[in-house]
């Protein structure tokens, strides 16, 4: 499929509702009152999908904002990481909290367990910068 464009494809919900699926593969309009009341859709369905975030990234990239696009692409990968683990990783990235080995282990985990290559690269770069700037935990 051709990449989406800000001028023709946004807002996605108006222009291409058929492209928007929940993380569990349901169509967006399956999130409706009837299905919520009957339990046919659950809170776990009400989550943005990696694909939708990539579409939104394409929209920003076509609009001249590659950094926002990159943010959405990192986010697309993160849809595969559980809530608790995301918060833990964030806390491990704070300055003087982790050692180099710990950050590199997280990078490895991101890549192998969650297929999160962009985030793994961010973690490795973080380890490199923290080393230069002495921002690791000192035991």
């Amino acid at each position: 499929m051709e990449k989406l464009n800000a001028n023709t494809d946004y807002p996605l919900y108006e222009k291409h509702p058929e492209l928007i699926k929940t993380q569990t593969g349901k169509s967006i309009d399956e999130i409706n009152m009837e299905n919520i009341l009957s339990g046919k859709v659950m809170p776990s369905d009400c989550r943005i999908s990696a694909e939708t975030l990539v579409y939104q990234a394409e929209i920003q990239e076509s609009f001249g904002n590659p950094a926002i696009g990159a943010n959405f692409r990192r986010a697309a990968e993160m849809t595969r990481i559980p809530d608790d683990r995301i918060i833990q990783i964030y806390n491990r990235m704070r300055p003087h909290v982790s050692t180099k080995e710990e950050l590199l282990a997280i990078a490895e985990e991101l890549e192998t367990q969650y297929d999160a290559k962009i985030n793994a690269a961010l973690l490795r770069e973080t380890a490199e910068v923290y080393e230069e700037r002495k921002m690791f935990r000192v035991d």
Binding site: R47, N71, F72, A75, E77, M93, R94, P95, T126, V129
Partner: peptide, 19 residues
């Protein structure tokens, strides 16, 4: 403030990943 540019970038994406 308990952050670096890199941790903040990760946090930003964490929010986007939950829409």
């Amino acid at each position: 403030g308990g952050d670096t540019a890199y941790s903040k970038a990760f946090l930003a994406s964490a929010y986007a990943s939950r829409g």
